[in-house]
Design a protein around this nucleic acid. Structure first.
Length: 426
DNA sequence: TCTGGGGTCCTAGGACCC
DNA sequence: TCTGGGGTCCTAGGACCC
């Protein structure tokens, strides 16, 4: 059996942790650039504030109801996430926890006898809450998809379930499938949900009655087959080993306001490249392919605010590298290629792929000495930037004017990761 | 008029997730 | 006026090989 442990309204819970005055008050957290609402406390959900909707559209509800609003504070969320995951590892054993996202992890409960599953889930829940202050919901089932389904049920009715739901027997599984709508199944997104509804399939139960052959034809080949198997309780999606290296690393941002000057775009792209290179070094990888894209500000943004016009290009490097300035150079060449005068741009991004182990970490006899110096310089920069202040050391091409910098006007303190912002009790 | 039968590797794009 | 930023996996199709 597997459990999925999911932090309740994670970003909001992190903010509330340091603001006891907001207990039982509505809270929302905004995406980068203060654009969308990406987390809502239960009280905010009850006010009818939609998930992932634009901030400006919900502003009137927010003001009328005195909702507390925060910009995203990833330093804080990242640190609290680590504490939650460490707690899970200490309870379940290191090898039995798969971190799935910043606020979710699968826990392998194979050694727990059926009659103790609920008790164990409850123990996990109480311990995480006691040690970190973050409340969680837990779903338990024979497969990942059924665990997610159980979790959905637990969250939907917190008072009745106590945020814990276990699907151990055939009977429990059947009832759960019957009351779950198709679009709440993990792995069924908008496109598949529409297709299924058109075919008259509206509940998870009805979907589970379909054959694997049918799923192969209609739900994306092997992906659909796995879905049906998992709904039947047959494991088709394995637990992953921890600390897998990423296969792609991206840093992309909306600009605070539209930009038309190529130098501003270059500053932004150089900055994003530095950020991406840091992520690269953190997992000891080097990149062989660098892509850069820009997105034009659309003319009619009500019609296609998400698509926009994306223009991208990429360069394959002769040798994979993790050295910032070796990546900035091709990145800026790419900006020259894709930038068109007279256009307004709202977003840019850098993606690193073709990742390999970084061979310059250990001294390399077959590479000129300068190569290793580069890596040492990078390590020093990373250390200083991490321990002091972001970007206290940076490359000149990243610029100093930063006309393009994103909005982030309502961020709380980085209480747990910066000495000068440490939480104080008076 | 007739034109094989395998492979592999790479890329673009679509679907999904949080 | 104002609509995020990461990721993953899979498939189809083209290029290329013998």
């Amino acid at each position: 059996m597997k459990a999925i442990v999911d932090c309740n309204s994670f970003y909001c819970s992190c903010e509330k942790l340091f603001r006891p005055d907001l207990n039982n008050k509505p809270v929302v957290v905004l995406s980068n650039n203060d654009g969308c609402i990406v987390s809502r406390s239960d009280e905010a959900k009850q006010l009818g504030i939609p998930m992932a909707g634009p901030y400006f559209e919900a502003k009137h509800i927010i003001q009328e109801n005195d909702v507390a609003v925060f910009s995203s504070n990833y330093n804080l969320y990242g640190d609290l996430s680590m504490r939650v995951m460490e707690t899970l590892r200490s309870i379940a054993g290191k090898g039995n926890v798969e971190v799935y996202s910043v606020d979710e992890a699968f826990v392998d409960l194979n050694i727990i006898p059926a009659e103790e599953l609920y008790k164990t889930a409850k123990l996990i829940k109480d311990t995480v809450e006691m040690w970190t202050g973050i409340s969680v919901s837990i779903g338990v089932g024979p497969t990942k998809i059924l665990a997610k389904l159980a979790n959905h049920i637990a969250k939907k009715n917190k008072t009745a379930t106590g945020c814990v739901s276990v699907l151990a027997t055939t009977e429990e599984r059947r009832n759960a499938l019957k009351k779950t709508r198709i679009n709440n199944i993990w792995g069924v997104g908008g496109a598949y949900a529409n297709k299924l509804i058109n075919l008259g399939i509206t509940s998870a139960w009805e979907l589970a009655l379909m054959s694997e052959e049918w799923a192969y034809q209609n739900l994306g080949g092997v992906v659909g087959v796995r879905l049906i198997k998992e709904l039947h309780g047959e494991q088709a999606i394995d637990m992953k080993k921890e600390l897998l290296e990423k296969k792609m690393i991206a840093t992309t941002r909306m600009f605070g306001s539209p930009v038309n000057n190529i130098n501003d775009i270059k500053e932004a792209v150089a900055t994003y490249t530095s950020r991406a290179a840091e992520k690269l070094r953190r997992q000891y990888s080097a990149a062989k392919v660098i892509s850069v894209f820009v997105v034009k500000k659309e003319q009619d943004h009500m019609l296609n605010f998400r698509q926009g016009g994306t223009i991208s290009d990429c360069i394959t490097l002769p040798v994979a590298t993790s050295i910032t300035h070796e990546l900035i150079k091709p990145a800026l060449t790419l900006v020259d290629k894709i930038y068109k005068r007279g256009n307004e741009y709202k977003k840019a991004g850098v993606m690193l792929s073709g990742l390999e182990r970084d061979s310059s970490i250990q001294g390399n006899l077959f590479k000129p000495e300068t190569k290793n110096c580069g890596r040492r310089l990078m390590d020093m920069m990373d250390n200083i930037n991490f321990s002091q202040r972001d970007d206290i050391l940076k490359f000149a091409s990243s610029g100093t004017t930063r006309n393009w910098k994103m909005r982030q006007e309502l961020r709380s303190g980085r209480y747990t990761t910066r000495w000068e912002e440490l939480f104080e009790v008076h």
